[in-house]
Design a protein around this nucleic acid. Structure first.
Lengths: 210, 210
DNA sequence: AGCACTAATGACTCGCAAGTCAGTTAGGCG
DNA sequence: CGCCTAACTGACTTGCGAGTCATTAGTGCT
C-alpha cells in the first residue's frame, strides 16, 4: 500500500507531443468526426480535460497534428524535388522511391483518406491540407515537369495534368490499402507498381531518345 | 379555409424510390455518418418515422441507394467493356469517353468519396461497394488488358496494375473535384485530362506499331 | 516540513441524431 | 355516407460525445 505510484505526473513539456501522436493514430483510424477525444486522451495516458489545457478545440488539435507529424516529411520530399537537377527519368525514379519509402508508408495515407471523406463537413480541414501538403507538393512537381519540358525531355502538354498522371496510381493504391484491404481485398505491391508505372511514364511522357 | 390540401398522401408504391433519391443526394453531400435522416425525410417530402416503414436502418437505406442509383450505370459501362472487340487503343478511347460522360459526372463520385472516408467505421459499406461496384469494374478492365496482351497489343506486365494506371487519374481528378474544389481550388478539365492521358497510355502501354 | 502554484482530473452540462410508439388521417370499400 | 385499415406523423426516449468547471494532487521553493 505504501510506495503507491502517483496517479499522474506533471509533464508540461512533453504533453503536446504525446497528445499529437495519439491524436494522429486515432484520426487516421477513425476519421475526424468519429475520433473520440476520450480515446485520444486515453492513448496519451491523460484525461480528456487535460487535452483542453493544450488545445482549444478538436480542430486545433488536428491542425497541430498536421503541422508536427505530416508536414516535416512532406517538406523534405518537396525540398528534394526542387533541388533536383537530374535528368527527368532519373528524377522520376528518385521521386517514386521517396514516395514508396516515406510519404505513403507513414501516416499521410490515413490522414489523406480522412480529409477526402470529411471535407464537406469540415472545409477548414480541406483548406489546411491543401495549403500545407497537397498544394506545395503539386506545384513543386508541376514545376519540375515544366522545367523538363523546357529542356525538351518531356512532351508538350499541361504540366499540371502530367503531375497528376505521375502521382495518381500511387495515391489510388494507398487509398485502396486504407479502404479495401481492411475488408479483405488484395493490396497492391507498391514496389512492383512503382516499377511498372515508371516504365509506362518513360514510354508515355518522354520524348523519344534522339 | 375550405378546400384545404391534405397533409400528406398515401403513396406506398412511389415512396421507396423517392426516399432513395433523396438519400443519395444527402449521402453524397454529407457522408454517411453526418447524413441526417431528418434531412433525407424532409427532401423526400415525408416524416422521419416514415423512412422506417420502408427501411430498417440507416445502413439498409444506403444499401438500397447503391443498388438502385449507382449499380445500373456501372453495369452498363461494364457490359460495354466486356462486349468490346475493338483494338485496344480504340477501346481506351471509348472507355475514357464513357467514364467522363457517365460514371464520373453522376452520383458515383460523391458516393465513392463517402465510402473512402468512412470505410473504417462502417466496413459493411466498403464491402458492399467493392462487391457491387469496384470489384466488377476492376476485374472487367483487367480482363480487357490481359486479352490485349495476349493479342500482342499491350506490353507485358501485371494487367491489374495497368488497370489501375488507366483509371487512377480519372479517379483522382474526381476526388479532387469533390474534396478541394469546394474550398476554392481549380478543378481539372476532364476532357483535356482524358485526351492527354490517352496519349500517354498510347505511348506507355502499347507495343510500338510495327 | 509547509506553502503556493498549477497540471491534471472526474463528474458534470448540453446538444444532437437514431430509432420508437401511440395516435391521426387519407382513401378504398361496403 | 360512414367505417376500417394501414400509411403516415409528432413527440418522445436513448445514447453518445464535445466542451466545462470545481476540486485534487504533484512539484518547486523557502
Amino acid at each position: 500500500m505504501t510506495d503507491t505510484e502517483p496517479k499522474w505526473r506533471r509533464r508540461k513539456e512533453a504533453r503536446p507531443q504525446e497528445i499529437a501522436e495519439a491524436a494522429l493514430a486515432v484520426f487516421a483510424e477513425r476519421g475526424f468526426a468519429a475520433a473520440k477525444l476520450e480515446e485520444i486522451a486515453k492513448r496519451a495516458g491523460v484525461s480528456k480535460a487535460a487535452l483542453y489545457l493544450y488545445f482549444d478545440t478538436k480542430e486545433a488539435l488536428f491542425a497541430e497534428v498536421v503541422r508536427t507529424a505530416v508536414a516535416p516529411g512532406v517538406a523534405r520530399v518537396r525540398g528534394m524535388i526542387e533541388a533536383s537537377e537530374l535528368p527527368f527519368d532519373q528524377f522520376l525514379q528518385l521521386f517514386a522511391g521517396a514516395l514508396t519509402a516515406n510519404a505513403l508508408t507513414g501516416p499521410a495515407g490515413g490522414i489523406a483518406k480522412m480529409v477526402i471523406g470529411e471535407s464537406r463537413n469540415f472545409p477548414q480541414l480541406a483548406r489546411l491540407w491543401v495549403d500545407e501538403i497537397v498544394g506545395p507538393m503539386l506545384s513543386a512537381l508541376t514545376g519540375v515537369v515544366a522545367k523538363a519540358q523546357a529542356k525538351g525531355e518531356v512532351r508538350s502538354g499541361d504540366p499540371r495534368v502530367y503531375a497528376v498522371q505521375i502521382v495518381a496510381p500511387f495515391l489510388v493504391s494507398v487509398l485502396w490499402r486504407e479502404t479495401f484491404v481492411p475488408v479483405g481485398e488484395e493490396p497492391f505491391d507498391l514496389q512492383a507498381l512503382a516499377a511498372q508505372h515508371l516504365a509506362t511514364l518513360r514510354g508515355g511522357l518522354m520524348e523519344r531518345a534522339s
